[in-house]
Simulated scan of single mutants.
Amino acid sequence: MDRRRHLGRRPMPMTFQAHNIKIPNIYEHASGTVLAIAGKDFVVIGCDTGVCSDNAILSRTQTKLCPISDQMVLATAGCWSDAVALTNQLKMEQQFYEREHFKSMSIESMAQMLSVVQYQRRHLPYDVCPILGGIDQDGQGAVYIYDCIGLLQREGYCAEGSAGAMLQPLLDSQIGCHETVTKERALSIAKDALIMAARSDQYTGDLVIINIITRDGIELHQMELSQN
């Protein structure tokens, strides 16, 4: 072979096979299920406590409910790191408001604040399904739901998370056809719905934590679920 031709060749680029390297997913879902039911003067908002990653169980005791004030709770399902970042930001905004105005932010204002926070992150949105529940300025129960860029809507009840699509028809049949629902009835429906979710959804399980929000504060209920 001609030595000049051999020396003039460009070296072949080196390629690396990375078949065994797993690229981390920044939007890895921790799954789980959250729901909320608004009544005349109360809100029942609940969640399971399982946190999963693929087939690994990361925690069995992690609540997805975050009290923002004595009459307001945020429930989040989806990417757990995004849920923590979002709830921390809302708690910080609530603290700034209390220092400046010497009172807690109303749920109407917090609902708009949450919408603005999500819209500001529209290019890299929080991958969560938030439900904001609490007592409004008229003393009525209020539940707000959102899409990924902050479009908000007030509803009487809602279910989100890995079993949300399965539980929403149940809530429609149990609550949607009735004009009013009592606090005891709403609590019973929430417990039954989360039990059904634990039996049918592998990402829902371990414990049920339910907060009942009234003008007097937040009442805590807890119940064991089957471990998946």
Rank of each mutant, 00 (worst) to 15 (best):
D138G: 10
T180D: 11
D48Q: 05
C52S: 15
L167V: 04
I26Y: 09
R185N: 14
S226Q: 09
E155T: 15
S53Y: 10
D206T: 07
G217E: 08
D206A: 08
D201R: 06
A165F: 09
H178C: 01
G78P: 06
L86T: 06
V208I: 15
A36I: 05
G161N: 04
R10K: 13
R185P: 00
Y126S: 04
E224I: 02
L171E: 01
K40P: 03
N228V: 08
R5S: 14
H101I: 10
T63W: 04
A190C: 12
G205S: 07
D138M: 10
A165V: 11
V43R: 04
G164E: 03
C79E: 07
Q137T: 14
A198D: 06
N55E: 07
M105Y: 07
H221E: 09
I209P: 00
G217V: 08
S104R: 13
G8L: 11
R99F: 14
P169M: 05
L124T: 12
S53F: 09
K103P: 00
D70E: 15
Y97N: 07
Q227G: 06
H19T: 15
M223N: 09
H123V: 12
L167D: 00
M105Q: 11
M105C: 06
T214C: 06
I189C: 08
I68E: 05
A75G: 14
A85D: 14
Q95W: 09
E219T: 12
L194P: 04
Q89T: 13
G217I: 10
V128P: 02
G205Q: 04
Y146A: 05
A197C: 08
A142E: 03
Q222R: 12
T61E: 14
